[in-house]
């Protein structure tokens, strides 16, 4: 005797003949449409990410931020097939392009970024500094994409300088859960950082 033969009210379980009809496929994401060459996705990406990318470019190269941002969007579109949406966000990937292109941009212009005070001495230092600025931005943005609970735990651990035990007590959360949130949060942030470090163009 099979299990199903003993089930109550089998008739009530009839899967609707139009079962296929209630399928609602998930529309492709902005990132997926971007990679596939949907030009509308580029415009959407621009409207969504341009302010932050330009802001980043300003930190990286100073007053010619828009020129660099223009290069970033053009390069990202031309090399879009190299972007893997399953690995991270388009924003992080574009930030990585800005980072790499900022060095080329400064070399071509023969100038240093206008960061205001404590200006780096050579291109090696500029490269390191631009990497640090970009990494911090990517990490902070990625942090905002975590679930609220996980983000809170990670923020308390790193921005609040709290130990796992202190967070556990503050949030009335089991220590194991705090530990899990920190580890999984760091794994997610590392993946996002990896996307920005890929050599994209």
């Amino acid at each position: 005797m099979t299990l199903t033969a003993t089930l109550p009210r089998v008739e009530a379980w009839r899967v609707p003949a139009a079962a296929i009809g209630y399928i609602r496929p998930v529309p492709p994401t902005l990132e997926e449409r971007f990679v596939a060459g949907d030009e509308a996705a580029l415009k959407e990406a621009f409207e969504l990410h341009a302010p932050l990318i330009i802001g980043l470019c300003r930190r990286l190269v100073g007053s010619e931020a828009e020129d660099l941002a223009q290069q970033v969007f053009v390069a990202s579109w031309n090399s879009r097939e190299r972007f893997d949406p399953t690995k991270g966000s388009l924003k992080s990937w574009m930030a990585g392009i800005a980072r790499f292109k900022s060095i080329d941009h400064l070399r071509a212009a023969g100038r240093r970024p206008q960061t205001g005070g404590g200006e780096p001495q050579d291109m090696g230092e500029i490269q390191a500094e631009n990497g640090r600025i970009t990494d911090r931005m990517v990490l902070t943005e990625a942090l905002s994409g975590l679930s609220e609970e996980r983000r809170t735990v990670v923020e308390l651990a790193f921005y609040g300088d709290m130990t796992h035990a202190e967070i556990s007590e503050k949030l009335s959360m089991p220590l194991g859960t705090v530990k899990s949130h920190v580890r999984r949060g760091l794994e997610a942030l590392r993946a996002e950082l990896g996307v920005s470090h890929d050599r994209q163009s």
């Binding site: 415009k43 621009f46 302010p51 802001g55 902070t140 921005y159 942030l189």
Partner: peptide, 23 residues
């Protein structure tokens, strides 16, 4: 390395609205 960057605090990049003709 990630933990070190996080301890530096949130990024301080200020968003800048694009000029009208950038697109």
């Amino acid at each position: 390395s990630i933990m070190g960057l996080l301890r530096d605090g949130p990024h301080d990049v200020e968003p800048v609205e694009p000029s009208a003709d950038l697109w």
